[in-house]
Computed example of a mutant assay.
Amino acid sequence: MKSQKSFEQQVTGGILYLVPTPIGNLEDITFRALRVMKEADLIAAEDTRNTIKLLNHFEISTKMISYHQHSDGGRLEELVDKLSAGETIALVSDAGMPSISDPGFELVQAALSKEITVVPLPGANAALTALIASGLAPQPFYFYGFLPRQNKERREALQKLARRQETWILYESPHRLKEALKAIEKAVGGTRQIVLCRELTKRYEEFLRGTVSEALEWANEQEVRGEFCLIVAGNEQADDSDEETAWWQALSVKEHVEQVMAQQSLTSKDAIKQVMKERGLPKREVYAAYHEI
């Protein structure tokens, strides 16, 4: 085990600070976050065009450099070299916690591999902000983030989420919300409770509470705007049998049906019924997946 004592004097190397930024309302910045950004040698920002607005508002003149998901390996090495040379870097994302749905994780890993101190600051976070106001069970919960863009990968991800007992949390952009809700409805049915949390902490903050079908109806009728956090109720019918059937969790629905047919000499009709029960999915979803409709 390697010990890190964040507030003891560092013998070698600098410090990587993970600094949360407001998710909408600038008043949600902390005094400590402002101090760290002012005192840092460098701010590594997901989008410098966005972060400069925050820095200008609070009159922070610290030098800034871009670091985002499209940055090449050279930028990562450059930041690690600066940290190794004793510089202090404040890592910030566009909004909320660094390394949640942004590339900060890779920088944290690289810094730790060089035994560089990594210090997290508490602060704004969209997922927890939405969860505690959703009205759905706040614990246990499962944070997933953004769903895959491709239909197959998204469907498989939702099939796994549909079996979870925990309340689950997704992020979604406005132009993808309708497709995401359609996929969720196919995976869990229309009666599962969901909360659409829109424009958190901003002027047009809104919570839309109801069933998945009602959420999809709303999205089809309204002009969808703003970033969304989706809070979805867990599967109340899930039980510990998931552990006993772990063998199929890595399979697609079609592969699962085929394995059941082969192992138990069942017809496709009976195998579909069994897979439907094991996965907690609607019959039509399993039927369509098996027949590739």
Rank of each mutant, 00 (worst) to 15 (best):
residue 3 S to E: 14
residue 5 K to L: 15
residue 16 L to Y: 06
residue 18 L to R: 05
residue 18 L to N: 06
residue 37 M to P: 01
residue 42 L to K: 04
residue 54 L to Y: 03
residue 55 L to I: 00
residue 58 F to E: 11
residue 59 E to Q: 14
residue 60 I to Q: 07
residue 64 M to K: 06
residue 67 Y to W: 11
residue 67 Y to E: 06
residue 68 H to C: 06
residue 68 H to Y: 14
residue 70 H to D: 12
residue 71 S to H: 08
residue 78 E to F: 11
residue 82 K to L: 14
residue 100 I to E: 09
residue 102 D to C: 06
residue 107 L to Y: 07
residue 107 L to M: 13
residue 108 V to H: 07
residue 108 V to W: 10
residue 110 A to E: 02
residue 111 A to T: 10
residue 118 V to E: 11
residue 121 L to N: 07
residue 126 A to P: 10
residue 139 Q to E: 12
residue 144 Y to D: 02
residue 146 F to R: 06
residue 151 N to V: 09
residue 152 K to R: 15
residue 153 E to Y: 06
residue 161 L to C: 10
residue 165 Q to Y: 12
residue 165 Q to W: 04
residue 168 W to G: 00
residue 168 W to D: 02
residue 168 W to H: 14
residue 176 R to V: 06
residue 177 L to N: 07
residue 177 L to I: 02
residue 179 E to D: 13
residue 181 L to R: 05
residue 182 K to D: 08
residue 182 K to M: 14
residue 184 I to N: 01
residue 184 I to E: 05
residue 190 G to A: 12
residue 192 R to K: 14
residue 193 Q to W: 00
residue 194 I to M: 08
residue 195 V to A: 03
residue 197 C to Q: 01
residue 199 E to I: 11
residue 199 E to G: 08
residue 214 E to W: 02
residue 215 A to S: 13
residue 217 E to P: 01
residue 222 Q to P: 01
residue 226 G to S: 09
residue 233 A to M: 01
residue 233 A to G: 15
residue 235 N to C: 10
residue 237 Q to P: 00
residue 240 D to T: 13
residue 255 E to S: 08
residue 262 A to L: 11
residue 262 A to M: 08
residue 262 A to H: 10
residue 263 Q to F: 07
residue 265 S to C: 05
residue 267 T to Q: 10
residue 269 K to F: 05
residue 270 D to W: 00
residue 270 D to G: 00
residue 270 D to N: 12
residue 274 Q to I: 15
residue 278 E to A: 15
residue 284 R to H: 14
residue 287 Y to C: 03
residue 288 A to H: 13
residue 291 H to K: 09
